[in-house]
Amino acid sequence: MAVRKTKNGYYAVSVYVNDSLGNRVRIQRQNPEWTSRAKAAAAEADILRSFSANIPVLFSELAFQYIDYKKMTVKHSSWYDIQAVYDHHIAPTFSEMKLSKITPAHIIQWQKSLLKSSYRGNTYSNAQLSKIQKYLKAMFSWAYQHDMIEKDPTKAMRTVKREEIKNDEQVLINPDEFKQFIEVVDNPVYKTLYNVLYYCGLRLGEAMALTFKDIDLKNTTLKITKTYNFKFREITSPKTKNSTRIVEMPDIVVSHLRELFKHYEDRYEYDLDCPVFGILSYRTMTRRLDEWIELSEVKRFGHHDLRHSSVSLLANAGFNDFQAAKRMGHDVRMFNEVYGHLFPNSQKDMAKALDNIAKNK
């Protein structure tokens, strides 16, 4: 324990305490209101009392305990995301606030500032805004469940969003454009990968995690059980529970995979656990994609746009949203939030089907 006078004339304290997980942590505080050693000593005593009951004084102490706990319960990429959201969007407002003094009014003011915030000149999407608010709410909920606060200031909080605008972010590549593009791709690995993304609708990480034993050419299926995380360069579990699935391949994809396997057999030795498309950096993949787009003179698109385009193919072929969602590894609710505009006639088709049933009675 230590109380010292700062260069600014007021006092600061530094104490070591045990957090709720039993870890020894150092707490340092200074306050312009601590104009005497006695005031600083009283504040020091408050800190020690609060930690003797494992009750954080400041929001930053709650965040430390919560994020440390999540590190043990979620994937590394998810934990990293929570930490990044806290550092960039939550800590600047709440880190030095007393946990017991944060009210719903503070939450509302924070939400207002969140709507005005931007990154590199671009405002955050509604999906990003929802995620940021979800993490803050989760922290307070965790604090309430562990008796760190008497009331949860986010209990009545509603997620704020920007006014919904037409989604122009999805770039759809029609079959003619894809054929024009794929004709200039002269690398068999990339050529096969693009066909898998376009005709099977896989996420890029799912495709990069495919091993030879995940591909059944005889039964023309792909088995999706994992995904590749480019940031951490590791194989992890799929994005969601629905992401684990079996995808039927059209003949054109089977044909490209057969050619790729023959290409490998003529040149390399590999086992069934090897990744089919190798280990490539996202930067390299993006650079190669841009080069072939420019060469083919089609409109610019990203890897994920091939997945969007695959959904468009299903919609144009007459499949309903439930069938498409199952193939893409989505639950129907989430699928309709992202792709519902591609299935405008689903409700009309249902109504017509019910009319036909009624008329046949």
Rank of each mutant, 00 (worst) to 15 (best):
150 E>H: 10
278 G>L: 12
74 V>S: 00
87 D>R: 15
92 P>G: 12
258 R>I: 05
324 A>L: 08
71 K>S: 07
283 R>C: 01
191 K>C: 03
80 Y>P: 01
29 R>M: 10
72 M>A: 08
260 L>I: 02
178 F>V: 10
286 T>A: 09
158 R>V: 09
94 F>Y: 08
322 F>N: 09
195 N>K: 15
130 S>H: 12
310 S>M: 09
29 R>A: 07
286 T>I: 11
267 R>E: 02
325 A>W: 01
342 L>V: 11
96 E>K: 14
314 L>V: 04
81 D>P: 00
247 V>K: 03
291 E>I: 01
301 F>W: 08
8 N>L: 13
162 R>Q: 13
354 L>A: 12
234 E>P: 02
325 A>H: 02
192 T>W: 00
296 S>P: 00
65 Q>M: 12
206 E>P: 09
145 Q>N: 15
135 Y>E: 06
272 L>P: 00
353 A>L: 12
36 S>F: 05
256 H>T: 04
77 S>E: 02
225 T>G: 07
174 N>R: 10
252 I>W: 02
101 K>A: 14
277 F>C: 07
167 N>H: 15
248 E>K: 15
7 K>G: 05
133 Q>H: 12
173 I>C: 11
222 L>T: 10
87 D>H: 04
250 P>D: 05
21 L>T: 03
161 K>R: 15
290 D>Y: 03
193 L>F: 11
151 K>T: 03
219 N>F: 04
330 H>Y: 12
306 L>C: 09
153 P>S: 10
58 L>A: 10
28 Q>T: 12
85 V>I: 14
59 F>A: 05
22 G>C: 04
21 L>Y: 09
307 R>G: 04
275 P>A: 08
116 K>V: 03
155 K>C: 00
33 E>Y: 07
35 T>H: 02
171 V>D: 07
83 Q>Y: 02
341 H>F: 12
281 S>N: 06
104 P>M: 06
341 H>R: 14
339 Y>T: 11
260 L>F: 07
149 I>R: 05
11 Y>T: 03
266 D>A: 14
17 V>Y: 03
59 F>M: 11
290 D>N: 06
37 R>L: 03
304 H>E: 11
327 R>W: 08
301 F>V: 08
99 L>Y: 11
29 R>S: 05
160 V>F: 06
15 V>W: 00
78 S>F: 01
231 K>T: 14
141 S>Y: 10
278 G>T: 08
225 T>D: 13
358 A>S: 12
33 E>H: 10
135 Y>M: 05
79 W>Q: 04
110 W>K: 07
120 R>C: 06
94 F>C: 09
261 F>I: 14
270 Y>M: 03
312 S>Y: 02
190 Y>W: 13
187 N>H: 14
200 C>S: 14
350 M>E: 15
61 E>Y: 02
193 L>N: 08
153 P>E: 05
58 L>Y: 14
221 T>K: 09
334 M>L: 06
12 A>T: 06
101 K>G: 04
227 T>A: 14
231 K>D: 12
328 M>V: 04
292 W>V: 00
180 Q>M: 08
336 N>H: 11
152 D>I: 07
339 Y>F: 11
144 Y>D: 02
168 D>F: 06
298 V>W: 04
192 T>C: 10
337 E>S: 13
127 A>L: 09
